[in-house]
Measured scan of single mutants.
Amino acid sequence: VTVDIKGMEYHFDNPEEAKKFAERMAKELGGELKVENGTLKVE
């Protein structure tokens, strides 16, 4: 699973970990979490 945090890509084997990480980063950065082509994106 790929997580894109404002252009920086992180790769996770575990989808649950990827989702938790993306949600935490969205909250910390005040960004919006989206799913695009199987990639979790925070913008």
Rank of each mutant, 00 (worst) to 15 (best):
V35T: 11
M8Y: 13
K19G: 04
K20N: 11
D4S: 15
K19D: 03
V42W: 06
V1Q: 07
D13S: 12
F12L: 01
K20S: 11
Y10F: 12
V35N: 10
T39C: 08
G30N: 12
A22I: 08
E36R: 03
E43N: 10
F21K: 00
F21G: 00
E36P: 03
K41G: 04
K20L: 12
E9F: 14
N37D: 09
K6A: 14
A26I: 08
E23H: 03
H11S: 06
K19L: 15
D4Q: 15
K41N: 04
K41D: 04
M25Y: 08
E17K: 05
M25T: 05
V3Q: 01
A26P: 01
G30R: 08
M25C: 12
N14R: 05
R24M: 14
F21A: 02
H11A: 05
E23N: 03
G38C: 07
G31K: 04
L40A: 04
V35Y: 14
T39P: 03
V3S: 01
M8N: 10
T39W: 08
F12R: 00
N14T: 12
E9R: 14
M8C: 13
G7C: 08
I5D: 01
V35Q: 09
K6P: 02
V42R: 00
D13C: 10
H11R: 10
G38T: 06
M25K: 07
Y10R: 01
V42E: 03
D4N: 15
V35D: 09
E28L: 12
G7N: 03
K41W: 09
E36W: 08
K34Q: 07
A22P: 00
N37K: 07
V1S: 08
L29F: 08
E23K: 04
F21V: 00
K27E: 12
V42D: 04
L40E: 03
V1E: 02
G7Y: 03
R24S: 13
L33H: 03
E28V: 08
K27N: 12
E32Q: 14
T39M: 13
G7S: 01
M25E: 05
E36N: 08
K6E: 13
I5H: 03
N37Y: 06
A26S: 06
D13K: 10
L29R: 01
F12E: 00
E17C: 12
H11F: 12
G38Y: 02
E43M: 13
E17H: 06
H11K: 10
V35L: 12
E17A: 10
V42M: 05
K19I: 14
N37L: 08
D13N: 11
E43I: 15
H11N: 07
E17G: 02
V35F: 14
M8S: 08
E23A: 05
R24E: 14
T39E: 06
E17T: 06
E36T: 11
K6N: 15
E16F: 09
K27R: 10
G7E: 02
K34M: 09
A22T: 02
K34G: 04
E9C: 14
I5G: 01
Y10I: 06
Y10D: 00
F12A: 00
F21R: 00
K6C: 15
E9L: 15
A18R: 00
L29V: 05
K27I: 13
T2F: 09
D4T: 15
I5Q: 01
K6V: 11
E28M: 08
V42N: 03
L29E: 05
V1G: 03
P15A: 13
G7A: 01
A26R: 05
K20W: 07
T2M: 09
I5V: 11
V1Y: 14
G7K: 01
E32F: 15
L33Q: 04
A22K: 02
E28H: 06
E17P: 00
M8W: 11
G30D: 09
D13R: 09
G30P: 03
E28S: 04
G38V: 04
F21H: 01
V42H: 03
F12P: 00
L33F: 08
L29G: 04
M25L: 09
D13G: 08
K6D: 15
E23P: 00
G7H: 03
K19S: 07
K41I: 13
R24L: 14
P15G: 07
K34D: 05
M25S: 04
M8I: 14
V35S: 09
K34N: 07
E17L: 07
Y10T: 02
H11T: 09
G30W: 06
K34A: 07
R24V: 10
D13V: 10
L29Y: 08
L29K: 02
E9A: 12
K19R: 14
G31R: 02
G38P: 04
G38D: 07
